[in-house]
Design a protein around this nucleic acid. Sequence first.
DNA 1: AAGTTCGCCAACCGCACGGGC
DNA 2: CGCCCGTGCGGTTGGCGAACT
Length: 315
Amino acid sequence: MGQHSCCNKQKVKRGLWSPEEDEKLKNYISTYGHGSWSSLPRFAGLQRCGKSCRLRWINYLRPDLKKGNFSSEETELIIELQRILGNRWAQIAKHLPGRTDNEVKNFWNSAIKKKHISQNLFDQAPFSNLSRSNSNFPQYSEFNQVYIPTQPPSPVQGIDFGEFKADQLSHSAIMLTTSPSSAPACPLGYLPQFIDRQQQILRPEDYSIVSSDQYPFFATNKLLDQNPSTMLPVLPKVLESIAGSSNFPSERLYANDMLASSDDIEYIKPIMPACSTLSSSSMSQTSSASSFSLSQLPCSGTMFVNPSLPPRWVP
DNA sequence: AAGTTCGCCAACCGCACGGGC
DNA sequence: CGCCCGTGCGGTTGGCGAACT
């Protein structure tokens, strides 16, 4: 590895900056300004190359830097700007006062990128534009590496959800929604579901309540069924179902990181059979977990989930 | 409690670009 | 015009602490 031209004239230190070095750099720049970065280290008495000094100042010592986590507004802005500008981090950072390109880039690579991949999978799914144009479709913001809805869809507004512990669920939940065969315009459901890894809490905004024009049910996936006690974030899944199909799931099941085959169907089963208003026929079908038909589910309704009550299906 | 894995982020590296000569 | 140098940018690395086994 060759050294940069500004660093090869003298022996320079590398690696993390010590507090003493920070102090020297800060004092020098606050007194004289940075001037020429290449000559700064010599005048400031630092055994660093100018490039390293510049980076340290811009990314860490600058007084106008904003410290702390990115807000949801900043996150949304980064996602939007990245979509428009691509990986032009310096350009993106200019729209975020007090944030550096390096910080934005790191944030993207660590926190947003993974979610974006799963979001892209969702975007690629057929008919996804229909769901996204639906006013009931949840909005998303960043939370610990997964997209989550920030507000429940309109049918459940006004209901006090509060928090409830993930372990109150018999399984970690993924909710898959699909359309009735009689509603060909709404063939796609989407589930944003998430369990906070740190707090082990399923937050009220983390589960999705479907609106009246969709069929809801809750399901576990294969992996969680194998390790039901393991609290893992449940990544978004998209169920693709062809309009007019009466059997579920007749087509493919997409997960963020895998394309499940129809062999996985047996692992998809409802976890909340206590949905008391489901008809007994559909209950027995769904509880058996092997297969069931959309036509056996109620035609329309809303699933209410409340920490103090059993899940409730309101036709 | 100890070892291992994972994720974050500060820092480095190479390259591109522009200005001066 | 071509070379050199300084600066800025984006990709990548590696150290370190947290989480996990």
